[in-house]
């Protein structure tokens, strides 16, 4: 990795920079740390927030697991995977047509950009109404359709950027080498942008996984996704506070693990796609 050290910094600047980073790292770390402590405390111990040394209890975690939080996580994963798979397949075809053949000109691009900034409050009520009509309220189907409304434009947008950047010659070579246009797209263009697609997919999955607004309105009951389930732990009765801490951590931990593994690639993908606009 190349660094831009061309301007020599005075030691004070370096010191200030590193202090800032340490301060920031602490401010990221400490909330998670305290949350973890809280998840192992009994109701009485939670009344003393400063308490550092105590006999940990697993009661909170057991209660959270009993409450069906894992099922919610499973539902969230299902929604995320279905939404992202559909978006990647449909989005990559559309993005390719937009990037390579300038379909619809700049208005298509603007439309896709604009779709990403639609206030969710505009779309959610129609979704609610339609899902009532078709008896789809409180199902994952309704949630998936609503998530497509923001995941699909984001993924398509990323992919347009990646296709724009991919060299045209390679697919032309494939056309001359005897592939049909669709085969060239599938066998030559897609592998070229595969890392980008991966990053876009992960980003789209995170968006879907984190959504509360649509899921809360469209499926608040039996089909609660993880954010909805976590929201239901919202409490201020001391006895249930530990469970709330544990429930929050259930949402945090997988993301921490996943993001550590894929972050480098993801960061490159996101910045590659997003910095264009």
């Amino acid at each position: 990795m190349t660094t831009l050290n061309s301007t020599r910094l005075k030691p004070t600047w370096t010191l200030a920079g590193n202090s800032l980073l340490i301060l920031m790292a602490l401010s990221v770390f400490l909330p998670f740390f305290w949350l973890s402590l809280g998840s192992f405390k009994t109701g009485a111990q939670l009344n003393n927030p400063a308490l550092l040394l105590f006999k940990p209890t697993l009661e909170n975690w057991k209660e959270v697991l009993r409450s069906g939080v894992l099922e919610s996580a499973y539902r969230s994963a299902t929604v995320g995977l279905v939404t992202v798979s559909l978006s990647v397949v449909i989005g990559s075809m559309g993005a390719y047509a937009i990037s390579r053949y300038k379909t619809g000109g700049s208005s298509t691009r603007f439309g896709i950009l604009a779709a990403q900034v639609l206030p969710p409050a505009v779309l959610v009520f129609p979704f609610l109404e339609v899902s009532y009509k078709f008896r789809l309220n409180d199902t994952l189907f309704a949630v998936i359709i609503s998530h497509l409304s923001f995941v699909l434009p984001v993924i398509t947008w990323f992919l347009i950027g990646f296709f724009d950047a991919a060299p045209k010659e390679v697919e032309e070579q494939a056309l001359v080498d005897g592939l049909s246009r669709f085969q060239a797209f599938r066998k030559v263009v897609i592998p070229q942008v595969a890392p980008g697609i991966g990053a876009a997919a992960v980003f789209g999955f995170v968006l879907s996984w984190n959504d509360l607004f649509y899921a809360l309105i469209l499926a608040p009951g039996n089909s609660a996704t993880l954010p909805v389930k976590i929201a239901s732990f919202n409490t201020f009765r001391g006895v249930e506070l530990g469970a709330m801490c544990a429930a929050i951590l259930v949402a945090v931990i997988p993301v921490l693990i996943v993001s550590f593994f894929i972050q480098k690639r993801l960061v490159r993908g996101i910045s590659g796609g997003a910095v264009k606009y």
């Binding site: 060299p167 010659e169 390679v170 032309e172 070579q173 056309l175 001359v176 005897g178 049909s180």
Partner: peptide
């Protein structure tokens, strides 16, 4: 279509 013309092409950037 290109594939039906039985031509081969070499590009500037090798492709």
């Amino acid at each position: 279509e290109p594939k039906d013309r039985d031509v081969a092409m070499v590009f500037q950037n090798y492709a």
